[in-house]
Design a protein around this nucleic acid. Structure first.
Length: 588
RNA sequence: GCACCUGUAGCUCAGCUGGAUAGAGCACGGGCCUCCGACGCCCGGUGUCGCAAGUUCGAAUCUUGUCAGGUGCACCA
């Protein structure tokens, strides 16, 4: 369906043309002065320059030319040259009826779907998720859903940190603790055991222990580096151990991400890109892009428009080892080969922007991706505590994600108990669902690129611009609809009729914005635009609800229409929170 | 040192492809449940839009300078 603003704009364009002006001035926006009008067109003021005419005269001409439109109920030229518009209520209700008939609520799929990869999550194996992983997961998941809803083929890749010294450290520590394991026996020829020789809990303890020791014990660190090297060279026992580490870690990670309602299509990691490195490096050398500098292999990526020094992109260290950049470049090679995406979005801490600028430039310059492959860095800011500094535990450490979530659930449970009596089991379930909305909405309602303050008290409150407030509104609608079903037997199809009071009109105008908001949220990869929209919509609904008796409506047609309006509002809200990555309970 | 990002009400944040009186929420004060969920709704005050110039009929929005805070600047990831 066309966007409602475009439909009104078309009317204005025609009117500008009819009055003898260029139609391009006809653009209509939602009014920023709701006390004066519903929609507005400011084109007359821009046109004044071209036609050397007072803006108010142009505006008056246009309004006159508008006389016979069915779209608008009122149009008024106001000094200095605003054109104030009021939409026709039958046109508006007609628009909503069309929208209600469509499964996608009038949001059209893109005409040419593209393959888009979203790189988000980025956890490290053998390490628990901590609060630093939260934003990437939440934002990435939402962006993935938004892009998919736009009609694209979207692939979410968790891109595990499963390569490098950390692996060598784990292997060394394991060797110290359990030297008799067959993985360390060079003469062992049989198949290795299927069972991992450790649990996730042990693994999570082993890594920090090994990491701490390597900082003091250089011989130990050297051994770990050797183990890393041997692993990378294909050491049979170590490879088998890596598989165990991956399996144990990934199943734990999946459980954790499932709690966040986050899921990935691909569970690939840095290690998967390693086989692509040798050929890639050779190609870069052969084609003359890579050269030696201070013993390291680098590629120049300066551009004329740079306002500062951009250091060359390092491909191999002076000792010949690969590094972060190498892996990311090789991952691009792998992705192009296996999935051939048109676009890749990296949802990563914004502090890594420089690194990705280097990777993107290098990949383009060396032809690892095509010239029109869109590599997009979606950087997010830091999650801070109430003091405005990086979020920490009371002891000053990094907080595990599980603990953060259980804190939220506890707070939510407390609030639920205060409000409504229900069984422990139900309260617990609802706390989980509502708690997740609190965390996700709290994060997504801010612009991703900015730092934000994580405030449990504020996020879990159902007052104000919060997840629980949105859910409350949905639950309230569900409750009314349920009551209606009890009375009338079922919610039957019926046309939505025009509402003449202001709160009803306002609600309908909000609903009509849906497809425009979705399109904009996708174009800008901006979940916070959806949050702002549903907050406005929820407010508009609650206002309408308070001013209008719904179940008590005398006229049966009007009553049915209002029920449909509720159904539509619920559909829009639920579609939106689905794109944000959470859902509403039946009651709360 | 160089570069990038941020600076809007007491607090947390929108608005930033220039448009009318700069908006929400929280907090604070007052009102509204014999009636569909009061976790709601209504009413009320709060601003040198960091500062200073410039462009423009018009600037929170664009340009330049400046101040403050944050972040990043090749052999970690």
């Amino acid at each position: 369906m066309k966007k409602i603003l475009d439909l009104i704009t078309e009317e204005m364009e025609k009117a500008f043309g009819k009055a003898g002006y260029d139609g391009k001035y006809g653009r209509v926006t939602v009014s920023n002065r709701p006390d004066l009008c519903e929609y507005q067109c400011n084109g007359a003021m821009a046109a004044a320059k071209e036609y050397h005419k007072a803006p108010i005269m142009i505006a008056s001409d246009v309004v006159e030319a508008l006389a016979d439109t069915e779209v608008l109920a009122e149009a008024q030229a106001v000094s200095p040259g605003f054109i104030n518009l009021k939409i026709s209520s039958s046109f508006l209700s007609g628009y909503l009826n069309d929208m209600h008939k469509e499964e996608r609520l009038g949001y059209e799929k893109v005409k040419e779907p593209e393959t888009i990869m979203i790189d988000y999550g980025g956890p490290n194996v053998a390490k628990p998720l901590h609060v630093g992983h939260l934003r990437s997961a939440i934002i990435g998941e939402s962006v993935k859903r938004i892009a998919r809803f736009a009609g694209h083929k979207v692939i979410g890749d968790v891109h595990l940190g499963d390569w490098g010294l950390q692996m060598g450290l784990i292997i060394m520590e394991l060797k110290e603790r359990k030297p008799d394991l067959p993985y360390f026996d060079p003469d062992f020829q049989d198949a290795y055991p299927k069972e991992a020789p450790f649990t996730i809990a042990e693994l999570e303890e082993i890594y920090p222990a090994a990491s701490a020791r390597s900082k003091e014990d250089t011989a130990y660190k050297d051994a770990a580096m050797k183990a890393t090297f041997e692993l990378q060279q294909g050491h049979r026992g170590y490879q088998a151990l890596l598989k165990h580490i991956l399996n144990v870690s990934v199943s734990d990670l999946k459980r954790n991400y499932a709690n966040l309602n986050v899921d990935f299509d691909l569970w690939k990691g840095e290690s998967d890109a390693q086989p692509y490195i040798p050929d890639m490096v050779r190609k870069m050398k052969d084609e003359g892009y890579a050269y030696e500098s201070d013993g390291a292999l680098v590629v120049d990526i300066k551009e004329e428009t740079d306002t500062k020094e951009v250091p060359p992109c390092m491909i191999l260290k002076s000792d010949g080892a690969s590094l972060y950049t190498t892996t990311d470049l090789a991952t691009l090679v792998e992705r192009m080969k296996l999935y051939h995406p048109r676009r890749i979005v990296y949802v990563v801490d914004k502090r890594q922007e420089m690194h990705f600028v280097q990777v993107f430039r290098c990949a383009k310059k060396c032809g690892l991706v095509e010239a029109d492959t869109d590599l997009k860095f979606l950087g997010f800011g830091t999650m801070n505590g109430k003091d405005g500094k990086a979020f920490k535990t009371r002891e000053g450490g990094v907080m595990r994600l599980e603990y953060l979530l259980s804190d939220i659930n506890e707070e939510m449970l407390k609030k639920i108990r205060e409000s409504r009596p229900m069984s422990d089991e139900e309260a617990g379930e609802i706390a989980k669902v509502v708690g997740l909305s609190a965390v996700k909405y709290g994060d997504l309602s801010n612009q991703a690129s900015k730092d934000y303050i994580f405030d449990i008290e504020r996020f879990t409150s159902s007052e104000g611009n919060t997840g629980p407030y949105i859910l409350y509104t949905i639950v309230r609608i569900k409750s009314i609809l349920k009551k209606y079903e009890e009375q009338a037997g079922a919610v039957l199809e019926a046309p939505i009729l025009a509402e003449e009071n202001e709160s009803g009109r306002a609600l309908m105008r909000e609903l009509a914005r849906f497809n425009a908001v979705m399109e904009n949220a996708y174009e800008e990869l901006a979940p916070h635009k959806i949050c702002a929209y549903i907050y406005d919509l929820a407010n508009a609904f609650n206002k309408f609800y308070h001013e209008t008796s719904i179940l008590g409506t005398e006229d049966e047609h009007v009553k049915k229409s209002r029920i449909q309006l509720l159904v539509l509002t619920r559909r829009v809200l639920e579609t939106c929170i689905g794109l944000l990555g959470f859902e509403a309970p039946e009651r709360m």
